[in-house]
Design a protein around this nucleic acid. Structure first.
Length: 580
RNA sequence: GGUCCCGUAGAUCAGUUUGGAGUGAUCGCCACCCUGUCAAGGUGGAGGCCGCGGGUUCAAAUCCCGUCGGGACCGCCA
């Protein structure tokens, strides 16, 4: 139907007769004898010269035949890849007429996202979405190649599975053959990939769709894609190598630069230095320990378990009083009792000193110690939080991001493995520990004494769980799994899951482990997030062809919608009246 | 469950702070003119429940309450 793509014709093609197909991007009419049509396909735009009598409007789908020729002297367009040439059209076929597009097709105008989604099929024609989806395809194929090169075998797992009440909220599917029973859609293929290990697959991977019925965010959709992987007879370090290799291949394929640094940081260190478990390593402004400085302080606000501070370079000038007040409000919303701030100025003795804010509550020694610890210079602004250690980390961690985080697409790609996550994130009201990862995570071998001790000591037990973080986004997580039923039983016991309950929820996995389970470990990372970061998008909806809005609706298909009564009947369902 | 921001023509936005005569601009659209433009140009024209509902007022796009939709975030996401 066509001989060439619009965006690929150059002066090397001059003299050739070509047939091209595409959408009318823009037209410039000069009367009945001359009109310029910019014809667009996914490769780019090409100027076509036609007589002005043809009615060719925006987004008409056309097929044109003509001779490629060089543009007349002075009419070359250097802004266009095909700007040296044009097609002298002698035949035009309108394949499809089109109504005017629902929004401008130029790349400059920002269009309301609901309207873009309602007419996604038009939005997808734009170069941004073309680039993002094509990059995504490169990400997928690069991952497949990397995993297969490393001996991983793609195994598909079911979408209709049993609901397991742990973790996120399940999407459920009613059973027709067994009314009143339900399937769940998988939150991840976790249990199946472990079964694959028992099944001797040795190295499993899958580019898997995962579904979780939780609130949507810029980096979260109901359904998302993961590289899911699991390997037998491997250590945590082996997993890091497999996954780092795949991710480095992806970055190289997309950007041309191969990342070489995949540093490790412990969870505890990340919490102390960055205030969260997904550190954005593109910038400094680390949380600085100030607790010793305020031991025995007179200042009430700093009499706390923990005092930490961060320093904003130049903040004394760049932040207005209103902005500072608003940061204090933010800190309170994040749970802090308050946010102490001080400007760094030059004192009478020529040295840096703290002023304004809470400076008057600090002794001279405390002030100079704070300045030294934060390496603050005149013109900077320092922020201090005193509270329980977890709260200090949380609030300053969020403040650090609010003040210093580079825009997506800036500061390069900084990967980091976060290791040694705690096995339990706290004790519940009933005194039972709450698992930080999932209940199949192997405890750290060095912490078995605390594990045996139980009680509060459990909170000091590390796990063999790990996250991969890129520029402050959690790409994914994994762990070394428990492959022995005796350890698994003890975990269930600690979590307060009875043997009957465990059998009911995970019986098939426990059964499998009785028949010879190899030691195994695995990982999964989000392909939507990785792709978004690779193309510099701050929202994963931009790398998904047909995403949902924050409320979980699809403006294009109007999902979700009601079922008719016959369908409900067949499924044995009745819809309750809406509470008003 | 909560906090914050947004909603005016097909699109992007002004106007809302401080209520006041007829809601403007740009792009797009329609018609006509135009033989070298490329965000073409010119002339003319159409197009608005100011998201929706209620309230205050002599008077509401503007103030108040509610609601719907969209976005960012907290909680949530083993």
């Amino acid at each position: 139907m066509r001989t060439d793509m619009c965006g690929q014709l150059t002066s090397a093609d001059i003299g050739r007769t070509v047939t091209i197909c595409g959408w009318v991007d823009r037209r410039r009419e000069h009367g009945e004898h001359l009109a310029f049509i910019d014809l667009r396909d996914h490769t780019g735009v090409l100027q076509c010269v036609v007589d002005g009598s043809r009615d060719l409007r925006s987004e008409y789908v056309v097929r044109m035949t003509g001779e490629v020729r060089s543009r007349p002297e002075g009419t070359v367009n250097p802004d266009l890849a095909t700007g040296d040439v044009e097609v002298d059209v002698n035949s035009v076929e309108i394949l499809s007429q089109a109504e005017p597009p629902p929004f401008p097709m130029d790349e400059r105008t920002g269009v309301d996202e609901t309207i873009r989604l309602r007419h996604r099929y038009v939005d997808l024609r734009k170069s941004r979405m073309q680039r993002n989806l094509r990059t995504r395809a490169v990400v997928n194929s690069t991952i497949r190649a990397a995993m297969e090169r490393q001996g991983f075998v793609e195994v598909e797992t079911p979408m209709l599975i049993a609901s397991t009440p742990e973790g996120a909220r399940d999407f459920v599917v009613p059973s027709r053959k067994e009314p009143g029973s339900f399937y769940a859609l998988p939150q991840s293929p976790q249990l199946f990939k472990q079964l694959c290990m028992v099944g001797g697959i040795d190295r499993y991977y899958q580019i898997a769709r995962c579904l979780r019925d939780e609130d949507l965010r810029a980096d979260r959709q109901f359904e998302f894609m993961q590289l899911d992987a699991e390997a037998s007879f491997v250590s945590q370090e082996d997993v890091f190598e497999f996954i780092s290799e795949a991710v480095a291949d992806v970055a190289e394929a997309v950007t041309g630069d191969r990342p070489t640094e995949f540093p490790h940081i412990t969870w505890a260190e990340s919490m102390e230095r960055f205030g969260n478990d997904k550190p954005d390593m593109r910038f400094g402004m680390e949380l600085t320990e100030l607790t010793p400085i305020f031991e025995g302080t007179e200042a009430r606000v700093f009499q706390a378990e923990c005092v930490k501070g961060i320093c904003l370079e130049g903040g004394a000038e760049s932040l207005s009083r209103n902005q500072v007040d608003s940061l204090v409000d933010d800190a309170k919303r994040w749970g802090a009792k308050g946010l102490a701030w001080m400007r760094v100025a030059t004192g009478d003795d020529g040295r840096a000193r703290l002023e304004a804010g809470v400076a008057k509550f600090l002794s001279a020694d405390e002030g100079s110690a704070v300045i030294a610890a934060l390496d603050a210079r005149p013109g900077d602004m320092v922020f201090l939080v005193a509270d329980a250690r977890r709260m200090v980390q949380r609030v300053l961690g969020m403040l650090r991001l609010a003040l210093g985080r580079p825009a997506v697409g800036e500061g390069g790609f900084k990967f980091v493995w976060v290791v040694d996550f705690p096995l339990f994130e706290g004790l519940g009201d009933d005194g039972k520990p709450i698992p930080a990862h999932h209940p199949f995570t192997m405890p750290h071998p060095d912490d078995m004494a605390n594990f045996d001790a139980g009680g509060e000591a459990l909170l000091d037990v590390r796990s063999q769980a790990y996250d991969l973080v890129l520029n402050g986004w959690e790409l994914g997580s994994g762990s070394v799994r428990i492959h022995r039923n005796d350890i698994q039983s003890r975990i269930f016991d600690l979590l307060g899951i009875s043997e009957e309950e465990a059998q009911a929820k995970f019986g098939f996995l426990l059964d499998a482990f009785r028949f010879g389970a190899p030691p195994h470990a695995g990982f999964a990372f989000g392909i939507d997030r990785l792709t978004a970061l690779m193309v510099g998008e701050e929202n994963i909806r931009e790398v998904i062809a047909f995403p949902k809005t924050q409320s979980g609706a699809d403006p294009l298909t109007n999902a979700p919608g009601p079922l008719d009564s016959a369908q409900l009947e067949e499924l044995g369902l009745r819809v309750l009246p809406q509470a008003t």
